[in-house]
Amino acid sequence: MKTVEVVVLIILILALALLITVGFEHIMPSTAVRPPAEFYLYATYNPYKLREYTVMSPEAVTAIVWDFRGLDTLFETSVFYLALIAGLALTRRLLSERAEKPGHGLSLIVKTVTRITAPMIIVVGASIALHGHLTPGGGFQGGSVIAVLPMVIIVVFSVSFLIMRGFTTSKMIIMRSLGLFGIGLTAIALFLVSLIQGTHAYVFQNMIKPDAQTSMPIYIAGALISGTLWFFNLFEMFAVAAGFSIAFIVLMLARTLQVEER
């Protein structure tokens, strides 16, 4: 029996080696830039030749996510929000948030280390979000990094500790809603301005278009903010950080109650 297994294994390894050798050129992605990517890289930051289609952001991914396909991202954010609403509706009877005694949590060592790392998590998350239009990252990524902190606090201290410190779900819902409100307002900002001025503009417009000459500010006090991108990233950071915090708190509250009922 054992020889059969060994033979099968050897054949498998040889077959895999052959596959990799022969199929190398097909399996490995080519290093050449494909035509769509070439277009986006050309259009992302091009104030010289493509002034009427460029996003004025050196970061191509954020430019695509918040400008070229901005409406898609808006709906993604809405889907996330709807999922949270569903989660809150399912666990609504838990949300009296009995802030009684906090649990024991982990040992003193872990707690001390968490206390030092807490501000660093926030600062790194904010840096990712605020440089989303310049370097890889953005509002969603930065907000997710910030949401690590409530998660860590729930694990290391306890969920009641977090609630007693003022991180209640109702406050998180307010922050989340303000973030979404900001995103919506940014999306129609240029439209509202042109409505007052009596000119022509699109919803979700960022830079000037051939038939709509109003534009979001590209620079503020000499700093590149790439129009709507900076505002979207900022508001998305608040919305996502608060949204994930709600999810973590609700999940852990449900678990605490389940353990108590048993």
């Binding site: 501000p119 660093m120 600062v123 790194v124 904010a126 840096s127 440089h131 006090a221 000499g222 700093a223 590149l224």
Partner: peptide
Amino acid sequence: IYTIYTGSLTGY
């Protein structure tokens, strides 16, 4: 930490 993580020191 913000400065080290960002890796640049412009006005922004």
